[in-house]
Design a protein around this nucleic acid. Structure first.
Lengths: 129, 129
DNA sequence: GTGCACCTTCCCCTACAGTGGAAGGTCAAG
DNA sequence: CTTGACCTTCCACTGTAGGGGAAGGTGCAC
C-alpha cells in the first residue's frame, strides 16, 4: 500500500505517518522501485493502536515504547498495565489541581459581585484578583 | 530600580521581565544614561498582579488586556468579571473531559487484571488498549 | 504531450511561557 | 588595572503533535 492509502484506511494523513516514522513510532518504511513508501496491512493496525493510545491520554513517546516492545517480540501487557496505573495517578493529580483552580477562580468570581470600580485600588491593578 | 532589583522584589527573573516587555505586558522601560532599564516601584505591583492572574489560570494575553485597560485609565472590573466567568466555563469543560478520560483509562486498567499475555492478539498490538 | 493526482525531501510555523547562552558594555571594589 | 556582578542585545531552544507549502519526481488517462 502507498502512504496515502494507509492514511485513508487509518483515517489520518500521509504527513502524520511520515512524522511518526521520523519520530521512531513506525519503523522506516520499505520503498518500492520508484522510492515511494510501501506498507504492509499491519501498519494500519499500528496507526489505529496509536489512536487508541492517544485516546487514553498517552503521549506518542509512551505509545512508541509499547510498539517497540511488540516489535521486539514481547507482549507489552505488563508494561501497558504499569503505564495505565501511572496514567491514573497522573490524571488524578491533574483533576485535583484543576478542581483547586476552579475553586480559587470561583472565589474570585464571587468577590466580583460586590466590586465597586470606584473602590478599586489602582496599585492592585484589580481588586478581584 | 534596575531590572535585577525589580525581579528580586517580585520573585521572578530579569529574563522574564524583558520577555514581558517584549510581549507587550509591560510598557517599554525607561532607560538610565547607561542604557539600563529603570523601573518605578509600581512595576513590582504589576508583576505581582501577573502572578495572581496566572494563578487564576489566565494566559499572559488575557492578563495583558487587563493591564492595558488599567494603563488606559479604566477600572478593569467588568472585563475581569467577564474573564472569570469564561474561565469558570473553560475549567468546567476541562474537568469534565479529564474525568471522562480518567473513567476510560480506569476501564482499560480494570481489563488489565484478567489479561493473559498468551491470549494477546499481536494484530491488536495490545489487548488492553 | 500534457494535465492531474500522488509521491519525495526540505525547511519553517503553530501555541505557551519562558530559558540558555554568546558577545559585549558598565560600574564599584580591591 | 583587573575582577566580578550586573546590564545590554540577539539568536536559538525547550516540549507536543503535527500542519503548510515549496520544488521536484512518477505514473496514468486523455
Amino acid at each position: 500500500m502507498r502512504i496515502g492509502e494507509v492514511a485513508a484506511a487509518a483515517d489520518t494523513t500521509a504527513k502524520t505517518i511520515r512524522f511518526y516514522e521520523q519520530s521512531g513510532l513506525l519503523p522506516a518504511a520499505e520503498r518500492s522501485e520508484n522510492g515511494y513508501r510501501s506498507y504492509a496491512e499491519d501498519t494500519v493496525s499500528k496507526l489505529r493502536f496509536i489512536r487508541r493510545g492517544q485516546a487514553a491520554g498517552l503521549t506518542l513517546a509512551q505509545i512508541g515504547d509499547i510498539l517497540q516492545l511488540r516489535d521486539d517480540g514481547y507482549a507489552p501487557c505488563a508494561h501497558v498495565q504499569n503505564l495505565l496505573t501511572r496514567q491514573l495517578t497522573y490524571l488524578d493529580r491533574q483533576i485535583t489541581e484543576l478542581l483547586a483552580l476552579r475553586a480559587a477562580v470561583a472565589e474570585f468570581h464571587a468577590g466580583a459581585d460586590n466590586a465597586d470600580p470606584a473602590s478599586c485600588d489602582p496599585d492592585r491593578i484589580c481588586s478581584l484578583l
